[in-house]
Design a protein around this nucleic acid. Sequence first.
DNA 1: CGTATTTGACCGGCGC
DNA 2: GCGCCGGTCAAATACG
Length: 339
Amino acid sequence: MEFTSLVDTSLDLNFRPLRVPDEVPKQEVESNFIGLGRDLMPVKDEAGDLLEELNRVSAENKKLTEMLTVMCQNYNTLRNQLTEYMSKQNSSGGEDHSTGSKKRKVESNNNNEIVKSVQGLHSESSSSDEDTSPKKPREEHIKTKISRVYTRTEASDTSLIVKDGYQWRKYGQKVTRDNPSPRAYFKCSFAPTCPVKKKVQRSVEDQSILVATYEGEHNHSKTDATGPVTTSPSSRLNAKSSLGVTHSIVPCSTTLINSTGPTLTLQTDQKKVNSNTSTSSPSGHKRKSPGSDHQQNRPEFQQFLIEQMASSLTKDPSFQAALAAAISGKFLQNNHTDK
DNA sequence: CGTATTTGACCGGCGC
DNA sequence: GCGCCGGTCAAATACG
């Protein structure tokens, strides 16, 4: 979708307005200073600078407000589409499994979990702890975070490798019933205790799209020194920041951008859906029937969404690091230009 | 030779 | 209880 094209998440957009007025007006001030002689009072310059700064901050604030509005709109749109897709899949038993007569309970549980989180219920973790289902073989399985990442690759590429900055060990491969392409099973091999698993399979509709399903949370940071890190989509996402900030990413909560095309992340535990220019994602073509979005149009629900987004941003170490770098950079720049 | 990957066998849940 | 199916194990193999 047009999400990332509209909103530059690298903070570069935020940062740039800080520089331009610092550089250009400085020259103007100097030229004024020279042109008008030295009888201009420095206090007046300072006041002018302050006014300029105030205007700049106001403009920046306005810009940020607009960005937030756009983000909210895009977020609502995407979430509505996801909800439609999920409800449709639930009602029809899943279009991806049209040939299958039976649907495994695990998968329907996952779908329920996704829809549940999409509907904004606060208590998914606690409710899954106290699941009233009589048969509950693996509580931790239900508790695990599950997210899907759609990655566009070359259709001829059969490696089933999704580079995400972590180190994975393949422990199995299966051909599933609903998809002729094999599904690969990976475990996080960076830390022996890391419980995260990953399943990678090509999309039925579009063979050039890899669907990576992550289960669990990493209990370590990214494997920055090894493996595919240097070319990982996430690190590329980080490197996109002009601030030069290197940091770890919140596990399983990042939109990944593949080298060959757009990706779509479905966040199943933080009510967050990110997307970019993809309109042909596996879920995308099923967005047909409008409706089934009574709840998300309610103002209090939208307020809740905004709070969730703000909360996600403030909890995101990447965002915090970028923000800190931007602020400190601004201070340093101010100190430098003041001298 | 050590490590990673492959792949057939096995296990357990689920539906009938 | 049986068969189907997804997920996992582990021996064999490949690779650096």
